[in-house]
Design a binder for these strands. Structure first.
Length: 432
RNA sequence: UCCGGCGUAGCUCAAUUGGUAGAGCGCCCGGCUGUUAACCGGGUGGUUGGAGGUUCGAGUCCUCCCGCCGGAGCCA
């Protein structure tokens, strides 16, 4: 009788097995008890009969509270009446540890604040089980995508000097005698260095924004996947993003259907996400918004409502390209046909999930980049090594950043991005 | 930071115009051999977020503070 996991039960029908895990919920009558049992890989119903265990043992087992840790030995059998179609008929129940007080998360009717105060326990719940396992699979899909295309993983640093997109939203720390350093809000500049060394590179890790954002689309600490490719221009960049996002969605449909179904996701909407994605220029988007009655002028950036209004015109994610250069970061390559706009794109997810990718072709000309750093009022001395990249072997190159939690929230159909990460850091929450 | 909303039992919520603070769940005891958020009977449970004020009387009205939720700006 060997120890197995719930996820492998279907290969052991008719066998006697051992499962190690926890009581999720239980119901009982005088002679039969049902335990909803979990072991981290899934949930299964265990049937405990008084006639099998004996009066005394049955009495103690039927009283086991939620989150008692137990080892079950019993026979696996198919059973129509059991959730999932398979159940365990217990032959023995060994109690590892019984809780000393009632488990605080009972029925699914707790408030969001209560639950996040107990996030360390809440992640045991079924909904969180499915969301966080879906996250695991989406990250697997991202890594697989790059591995299959010969990209090299280049992890960018978390501690950085004063460098990046904007100074106003950086977390500042003391770094021994060096002085102030900052938590990374992007690894892009490092990936640009790496692209000139390895050709095709990507990263995947946490980034930090000291923005007092308090919406369903924002986290203070969030994970980003960035990619950068030497010799890629704007059009190549769009194609890569399109391929990545459709790969992730297809992977989820093929490998995570169990989670999507539990979460009640409308699968049909995800099945439509296949290349090519629609494209609209910034200028066209402004006209579209004006026609819909938005008070917006050429040159303004889009807010959440504007993004949603654009995205709802399409069933797939939509690229918005060629933004005004003043609305975007200093390093973006001007459009040769119109230098007032840059070769960039935002990818907007459908159904109001907002921007999941920000992307651009980067300036590769030394003098132009210096001009832009000055124009944006940035300290040129902080960009010494970044400018070096334009001195030696500079080539056109492009890249993007994918917001991992926004992507998960969209694919899972979540109301709020905070459920898409195990321990979210939001404006007023760093505990647990 | 700004705008709006909400703080009542361990949890989720009720409480007519200002007039005796309640229910369901949880927990404890008992019953039930197929439960699916099991069900049935009994029991347990309160400084109504805090401080002050108005009033014969405040969960309810006023002021300040604290906490949370939603949104805006900013962004992935």
């Amino acid at each position: 009788m060997g120890w197995i996991y719930i996820e492998d039960l279907k290969d052991h029908i008719g066998e006697s097995v051992e499962l190690r895990g926890w009581v999720w919920r239980s119901r009982s009558s005088g002679k039969i008890s049902f335990i909803n049992f979990r072991d981290g890989t899934g949930f299964v119903q265990v049937v405990v009969e008084r006639s099998t265990l004996g009066d005394e043992k049955f009495k103690s087992v039927r009283k086991l509270p939620m989150e008692a840790s137990i080892i079950i030995r019993g026979k696996v059998r198919e059973e129509r009446r059991a959730p999932g179609g398979v159940e365990i008929l217990a032959e023995d129940v060994e109690v590892v540890r019984e809780p000393s007080e009632p488990y605080p998360i009972t029925k699914p009717d707790h408030g969001i604040d209560y639950l996040f105060d107990r996030r360390h326990l809440w992640i045991r719940s079924r909904r969180q089980f499915h969301i966080l396992r879906l996250r695991d699979k989406i990250i697997r899909a991202i890594r697989e995508f790059y591995w299959d295309r010969g990209f090299v993983l280049i992890d960018s640093p978390i501690f950085t000097g004063s460098i990046g997109e904007a100074a106003g939203n950086l977390f500042e720390l003391d770094y021994f005698d060096y002085g102030k350093v900052y938590l990374a809000q992007t690894g892009q500049l490092y990936l640009e260095a790496a692209a000139l060394a390895f050709g095709k590179v990507y990263n995947l890790g946490p980034t930090f924004r000291a923005e007092k954002s308090k919406t369903r689309r924002h986290l203070i600490e969030f994970w980003m996947n960035e990619a950068e490719v030497a010799y890629y221009e704007h059009e190549d960049n769009l194609k890569l993003q399109e391929d990545l996002v459709s790969h992730i969605v297809r992977y989820a449909l093929e490998n995570a259907m169990e989670h999507l179904e539990f979460l009640g996701r409308d699968i049909k909407k995800l099945e439509k996400v296949e290349p090519p994605f629609p494209r609209i220029t910034y200028t066209e988007a402004v006209k579209l918004l004006q026609k819909k009655g938005f008070d917006i002028e050429w040159g303004d950036d889009f807010g959440g409502d504007e993004e949603t209004a654009i995205a709802e015109q399409f069933e797939k994610p939509v690229f918005v390209t060629h933004y005004p250069r003043r609305a975007k970061a200093f390093y973006m390559q001007p459009d040769p046909d119109n230098p007032e706009v840059v070769l960039c794109d935002d990818l907007l997810a459908p159904e109001g999930y907002g921007e999941i990718i920000g992307a651009s072709q980067r300036i590769h000309d030394y003098d132009l980049l210096v001009d832009r750093i000055k124009e944006f009022g940035l300290p040129i001395e902080a960009y010494d090594w970044y400018l070096d990249l334009r001195k030696w072997g500079s080539v056109p190159h492009s890249g993007f950043g994918l917001g991992v939690e926004r992507t998960i929230a969209w694919i899972a159909g979540l109301e709020h991005i905070r459920e898409a990460i195990p321990f979210p850091r939001t404006l007023y929450r760093v505990h647990p």
